[in-house]
């Protein structure tokens, strides 16, 4: 049955329309969870507000569990779902640069658009910087290409890499995530701050 677009159940234009609707849901949830506030987001890294950890991991858990159950019921063919390819070094270095961007800028791209749309001026500047960063990457692309396209590892999933069954890995992630939530709530009590 799913994914709908790949099995030609919906047309290209319907797909774009649904993208817009899904986007509304995405933006609404991000904003109402407090992701439009950079100080709240940055609180994650000082322990005074771990909303990022909770929302982020709860969402990942729900998606993992939900998709695996849908696959069990044959509602979706997970082989047709996009799995981002693993290019080891570009992922690691790109991730590290993004982490530095997160702690200096206080947003990530998705949250900066949310924050800009409710009037945060710092988010508008962040978006401007982001465009600039993409242009810099584009201009330096010939230099970066070996790194960007190197160390290609295919599109493995974590269970494949560990040689375990999907469900077992998901159970493990659930337990780790619940443990992190517990630590997060403990940290929030230890470093209390008023909400921004």
């Amino acid at each position: 049955m799913g994914p709908l677009i790949i099995n030609d159940i919906i047309s290209q234009n319907t797909n774009f329309f649904l993208a817009f609707i899904i986007g509304i849901g995405f933006g609404f949830v991000l904003e109402s969870s407090g992701f439009s506030s950079s100080r709240k987001l940055a609180g994650m890294f000082y322990g005074y507000d771990t909303v990022v950890l909770k929302v982020f991991f709860t969402a990942a858990l729900v998606a993992m569990v939900g998709l695996l159950f849908m696959s069990l019921f044959n509602w979706i063919d997970l082989d047709m779902v996009y799995i981002n390819p693993t290019y080891l070094w570009s992922t690691i270095i790109g991730g590290a640069i993004m982490g530095a961007g997160f702690i200096t800028g206080g947003f990530c791209p998705g949250t900066s658009f949310c924050a800009a749309s409710i009037g945060k001026i710092d988010a508008i500047f962040f978006i401007g910087g982001m465009f600039l960063g993409i242009v810099i990457f584009a201009e330096a692309y010939p230099l970066l290409e070996p790194l960007y396209k190197g160390s290609f590892k295919g599109t493995p999933t974590l269970p494949q890499a560990l040689g375990l069954k999907d469900g077992v890995v998901v159970l493990g992630i659930i337990i780790v995530a619940l443990g992190m939530f517990w630590v997060g709530e403990w940290a929030e009590k230890k470093f209390p701050r008023e909400e921004y």
């Binding site: 991730g95 990530c108 791209p109 910087g129 465009f131 960063g133």
Partner: peptide, 9 residues
């Protein structure tokens, strides 16, 4: 931060 995030992403 925006520049870093744009580049890194």
């Amino acid at each position: 931060g925006g520049i870093l995030f744009g580049f890194g992403s």
